[in-house]
Design a protein around this nucleic acid. Structure first.
Lengths: 211, 211
DNA sequence: CGCGGCTCGTGAAACATTTCACAAATGCAC
DNA sequence: GTGCATTTGTGAAATGTTTCACGAGCCGCG
């Protein structure tokens, strides 16, 4: 049911399909074809069917997929049938945006704590959250039963903070710092680098204009 | 010199190499080997050499690469020898974080205007910027000579805003809205979906625990 | 019931990317 | 100058991903 190795690109698409399935469900549709999903997600019907086929066969030939059933199955595959407790490391503007981002909570990711090094930020409140001292990071991870850390700091302190997070037993990090974190193999790291996205746009513009 | 088609994954790595080259330059290193770059970037020396080989041969056998020269060459390849004028569409918290993000300005991306639909936000100031009415979007694009738009809105208005941006002649969009934008082929779109990143982490956790 | 129009599931083919492996250069020591 | 330790650049092989093509199943209709 869960194959050994599924490509990251496939998993990302599954998450996208889920988003559009929920949209279809809101519109009252009860079945959807691979072609319809593909069009919304910007891919092909064959790709949709192949992606799903890694995990089983959920459709009815001639009909398509049952919208609520496939949605439930995708949530199960992606591990979204439960909620996760998330710690924000860094209390800058981006952290603030993430803390309030409804898209996280809607998907089961609850920000339960925020830490920072800056005394001017420590003690300030963000909605129901209070920014805590980064010195208390280890205690907070344990007390709040944190499962996922989001690293939203400058490059310099990122590796050391990652080491401390790993030492507490955290095994999932979403890293916004522009460094390649060195962590043990059991720890899952996803990197997001916003500047790189703009730079690839710049490359595309540059290259198109030269043709 | 600029080959027909270079993989997106290669371009992203070039941007990452550039970041570490600048770090090496700050430390006063004047040459760097593919292996040293690879270690920092989390890849292999062969990958680094292959990536660079698409654009020419910049190294000296036995020695490595000249740090400032390779940096300059990467900036040229990525189109970062000039500055870009960027418009933020949407004035939420994420937009605020992006507007202030030093990493953009450092790379040549200047946010020159912000628009929103919410009357409560229009007229408020963000540093030197004043939030403008989205109704004036077309005028602003022309007056400010905007080249890149960053779409930071909910899903619903995103497609319509993209249509308006495309109509003004904008050919590069960084899209944070969770929709697949339909645009003409000449328009470059990069999608960033923060919830999807967390969901792929969730998948990894889920899957690991089942093994 | 049998037929026709859909749509899925999936092996095989096509295509893309990464890794390998090694010749060719380079600098340094002596 | 010669030999040695390095490190690049690059075809070829290996691996990974997407697309194709088609058999098989399902529904509705007469």
């Amino acid at each position: 049911m869960h194959p050994r190795k599924v490509a990251d690109s496939t998993v990302r698409r599954l998450a996208i399909y889920l988003r559009f399935l929920e949209e279809f469900a809101d519109q009252g549709a009860d079945t959807v074809s691979s072609g319809a999903l593909a069009q919304r997600a910007g891919t092909t019907s064959a790709q949709v069917r192949k992606d799903l086929s890694f995990f089983g066969s959920f459709g009815k030939r001639g009909l398509g997929y049952d919208v609520p059933a496939l949605g439930a199955r995708l949530r199960q595959i992606l591990g979204l049938t439960r909620r996760y407790r998330v710690l924000l490391v860094g209390a800058g503007r981006l952290a603030g945006a993430l803390a309030q981002y409804a898209g996280f909570a809607a998907r089961g990711f609850d920000v339960v704590a925020v830490v920072d090094r800056d005394p001017a930020k420590i003690g300030t409140c963000w909605g129901a959250l209070r920014v805590d001292d980064v010195d208390r990071l280890e205690k907070i991870v344990v007390a709040e039963r944190v499962e996922i850390a989001i690293l939203v700091t400058p490059a310099e302190p990122a590796q050391q903070l990652a080491d401390r997070l790993v030492a507490t037993g955290i095994t999932a990090i979403l890293n916004f710092a522009p460094v390649q974190l060195q962590v043990p193999g059991v720890v899952e790291v996803k990197n997001v680098n916003l500047a790189v996205e703009l730079e690839t746009l710049s490359y595309a513009l540059q290259h198109r204009e030269e043709n």
